[in-house]
Design a binder for these strands. Sequence first.
DNA 1: ACAGTTTGGAACCAATCGGTACAAAACACA
DNA 2: TGTGTTTTGTACCGATTGGTTCCAAACTGT
Lengths: 194, 194
Amino acid sequence: MARPREFDTKVALTDAMNVFWQHGYEAASLPALLEGMGLTRGSLYKAFTDKKTLFIEVLNRYEAEAVDPAVALLTTGPADGAARINALFDGLVEAVERGDQRGCLLCSAAAGPSAVDADISKVVQHQLRKMGDAFHVALIQSVPQSRAAALDLRNLAGLLLSQYVGLRVMVRSNAPIDAIRHSTKAIADILEAL
Amino acid sequence: MARPREFDTKVALTDAMNVFWQHGYEAASLPALLEGMGLTRGSLYKAFTDKKTLFIEVLNRYEAEAVDPAVALLTTGPADGAARINALFDGLVEAVERGDQRGCLLCSAAAGPSAVDADISKVVQHQLRKMGDAFHVALIQSVPQSRAAALDLRNLAGLLLSQYVGLRVMVRSNAPIDAIRHSTKAIADILEAL
DNA sequence: ACAGTTTGGAACCAATCGGTACAAAACACA
DNA sequence: TGTGTTTTGTACCGATTGGTTCCAAACTGT
C-alpha cells in the first residue's frame, strides 16, 4: 500500500528490552530508548503507541526470551528436579561472574514503582507465578514419592521463587558476589537434604 | 544567636522517611516531600542540603528505626534463634495482612536505580550486611552445637537475607499474600528440620 | 531597643520529562 | 508517471524535575 517500515519491529523491541533492562522502566528516558533502538520519536510512537505500551510488549518479549527458557530448564531435562534448580541458580551466579549486574528485568519491574501500575503489575505477577509453578514442577520431580506427601512442596516452591527474586535484586544492588554464592550454596544443601 | 527553626528536624526526617518509603527514592518528588514534611523549599534545602543527602539521612534513620529493631529481634530474646527468625518473618506477613504494602525502604533502595549511586549503595550494603550478620547470630543460637559444625551457617544466613529481601520486594509488587505465607512457612519448616 | 543572624516563603531557573503536530520523504499500486 | 498512503524526522508542547536566589520576617543576645 505505502511506505514500508525501515526497521525490524522485533529487533527494535529487543533493543528496547536491553535499555529497560539496564535502566529500569522509569529511569529509561525516551532519548535513551530512541538512541538504543536507533529510531526517532515519530517512528517509536507510530509503532508502539506509548512508553508504557512499549514496556509491556518488552515484558512479553522478556517472557519469551528469558522466563520461558528458565521455565523450560526447570521443568524438563534429563537430570532430576533438584539438579535443574541448582543449574538455574548456578547460571545466575555465573552471569554475575561474567560481569552482568543488570539483574532481572522482571524482578526490577516488580520492585520498582512501575509495579504500582495495574497493567504492568498484571504482567509481572503472571510471569512470577509462571516461575513459581516451574519451581513446583521441579520439586515434584526431585523429592522421592515416598517423602513427597510429608512435605508441602508448594511452600517450598514459593520460597524458591522469592529467593530467586531476592537474589537478583541483590545482584543489581552491588551485593558482594560471595553473598550471592552463599545463598545458592545453601539452596543446594537444602535440596540435597530433602 | 538568631532565629530558631520552626520545625523539629527529627520529625521532619521521619515524615521524609514515610514519603520515601511509599514512593521510593526517585519517585518521591520534591513537592511530595515538602507536602509530607510540612515545610517549604527554602527550609528543606537549608536544613538538608540536597534530595540525595536527605535520603541518606533518611536511610540512617531507617536503620535506627527499622533495621536495628529487626537486628535486635534476631540477636536477643528469651527464645531460641529459630523462633526469633520465624518471628521476624511472621511480623512481615502480619504487616501485609494489616494492609501495609510498602515493603521495605532498604530493599526498595537496593532494587531501584538509586542503588547505582555509590554513596547510597554504600549505606544500603552496610545495612544489608547488618541484617545478614543478625541472621547468622540467630542461626548460631538455634542449631544445636553438635550439628553446627556440619552446617555452614553463613550460607544459610545469606539465604535468609536474600529471602527477606525477595519477600519484601514481592510484597511491594502486589504478590498474592498466599505466596508470601508459603515462603515463610517453608522457612519455618527448614529451620525446624535443622 | 538595637544589631546581628538565620529562617521561611515565593519567585524564578534551566533542564528534562513524555507526548503531539505536521510537513517532507519514500514507497506501493495503478 | 502520477496518486494515495504510510513512515520518518523535527520542531514544538505543557508539565514537572531538582535546585537557586533573594528578601522580608522572626528571633536571640546585648
